[in-house]
Nucleic acid binder design. Structure first.
Length: 471
DNA sequence: AAAAAAC
């Protein structure tokens, strides 16, 4: 691995990279950057989360003439959210070189996009359909494009974009650089490369080189009817910073996020049937941490890089084993740990074994969370907070004693004793733990009648929900 | 069969 500041990049890029907090290159970046700088065509086999966007973005922008005469680079992605994300990252990389990128995708007012194009971005990041639309309208000129990037190419092909991709590739000059990234390398991808690329350099990360983030993978065996309660309990016990819950269908996503909202969780849903404005808003809320739980179809399974996602729950077992790998990859980003829990009904166990083989990881069984687990879990969270407070106030002796007690965390009595030790003014009342205690301790958000939207406890705005409910 | 993607 090498350092970004030793590979001879221009100062404008180095500055941006350092501002983005990058230091060491990832394996794919280390191998891709020099080749792209040389102008070579590349086929890169890499999972998401390997630093792919920077791997092509940094050298592409480095060698780009920043004049505003024409579109210099075109990046094609399978989903709209991915287009937005990639464009944002490229914008950051190019910020001091005055290189701008613009996401172009469907569902957004086309006239507005045409106006944005007048700002003359050097890089366009788009989804195939809308790109084709602009090409036909002649509102995008690709005659000066020097670099084309096909991101998540396998995904685009399996979504039936072969023809669109071909049309786009025919529209750009033959003398150009083509970079193709794909998690898998089926024959269709190699065919495409054969026809549209020139002596491509093949970069494949050996399995051990692929950064497999520390993702703990497990499953719970549940009846369909239990799923919702089990999810709530897990959320209470684990208290994720941010979590993504994947559902099988759009309908299910709607029902699930409504039910979660109803129970007081900060949740929103996203799928392809929502208006693009809403999709954009939901993603923004989630990225900003305004919502803690994103309920999603596989629209959000691939490529999205959102920091702070500590947990992924597969509310439904993904049909496609590939999809499983992508879904769980939404957590454990940037080298941080993450946990993925898959809900499996008894009849789906066999399917899970198949997924296990594809994921090449053992998925361990986790017992269903009991009511007691929830209580203990919440006590532990409280303990963590108190321990932190204790640290600040330097009451080390208390801390030691409490930690000793914590070792035996099966015992709620001990926990409550530890709690008392650490509280400055210990409550004399015992902590009563009965089955009648509410499943959820968090206060539900309140509905602002006048404004017509929900407000969180911190009084921040919260968008209104759909009326239906099933869980 | 579902999901994604153009109007």
């Amino acid at each position: 691995m090498s350092n970004f500041f030793e590979i001879g990049l221009s100062s404008v890029l180095t500055k941006a990279i350092s501002e983005m907090g990058f230091e060491e290159t990832t394996p794919i970046q280390e191998r891709t950057i020099p080749l792209v700088l040389e102008g070579k065509d590349i086929i890169g086999q890499a999972q998401t989360g390997t630093g792919k966007t920077a791997a092509f973005g940094i050298p592409m922008i480095e060698r780009m003439n920043p004049d505003r005469e024409s579109i210099k680079a075109l990046v094609v992605t399978p989903t709209r959210e991915l287009a937005i994300q990639v464009a944002e990252e490229l914008n950051r990389i190019g910020q001091f070189k005055d290189v701008r990128s613009l996401p172009i995708y469907g569902g957004q007012d086309i006239d507005r996009q045409i106006r944005s194009l007048r700002n003359r971005p050097q890089i366009i990041v788009g989804t195939p359909g809308r790109l084709m639309d602009h090409m036909r309208r002649r509102t995008i000129r690709l005659q000066q494009v020097e670099t084309v990037v096909l991101d998540e190419a396998d995904e685009m092909l399996s979504m039936g974009f072969v023809e669109d991709i071909e049309n786009i590739l025919k529209e750009v000059p033959e003398q150009r650089q083509t970079l193709l990234f794909s998690a898998t390398m089926p024959k269709s991808i190699l065919d495409l490369a054969q026809r549209f690329m020139q002596n491509p350099e093949y970069i494949s990360m050996k399995t051990k080189e692929i950064i497999v983030p520390q993702i703990e993978q497990c499953y719970v065996e549940v009846q369909e009817k239990q799923k919702f309660d089990v999810l709530c309990r897990l959320l209470d016990i684990q208290s994720p910073d941010l979590a993504i819950v994947f559902g099988r269908t759009k309908r299910r996503v709607d029902e699930l996020f409504e039910a979660l909202s109803k129970r007081g969780y900060s949740a929103e849903g996203i799928h392809g049937d929502l208006t693009q404005a809403r999709r954009d808003m939901v993603m923004r809320h989630f990225k900003e941490g305004l919502t803690e739980i994103l309920v999603a179809t596989d629209v959000a399974a691939r490529g999205l890089d959102i920091s702070g996602v500590t947990h992924v729950y597969n509310f439904d077992v993904p049909q496609d084993p590939e999809s499983y790998v992508h879904r769980i990859g939404r957590t454990g980003r940037a080298g941080k740990g993450g946990q993925a829990i898959t809900f499996v009904t008894p009849r789906e166990i066999g399917h899970l074994r198949l997924i296990e083989q594809v994921a090449k990881r053992r998925i361990t069984r986790k017992p269903l969370p009991t009511f007691n687990d929830v209580l203990v879990g919440q006590q532990r969270l409280t303990m963590d907070k108190i321990l932190k407070a204790a640290e600040d106030e330097d009451i080390l002796r208390y801390k030691e004693m409490a930690e000793e007690l914590l070792e035996d965390n099966d015992s709620i009595t001990l926990l409550s004793a530890a709690l008392k030790l650490l509280t400055k003014e210990p409550s004399t009342a015992p902590i009563v733990l009965t089955e009648e205690a509410p499943l959820r301790s968090r206060q539900p958000r309140r509905f602002d009648q006048q404004q017509g939207f929900h407000r969180n406890r911190d009084n921040s705005k919260y968008p209104s929900r759909f009326p239906k409910r099933k869980f």
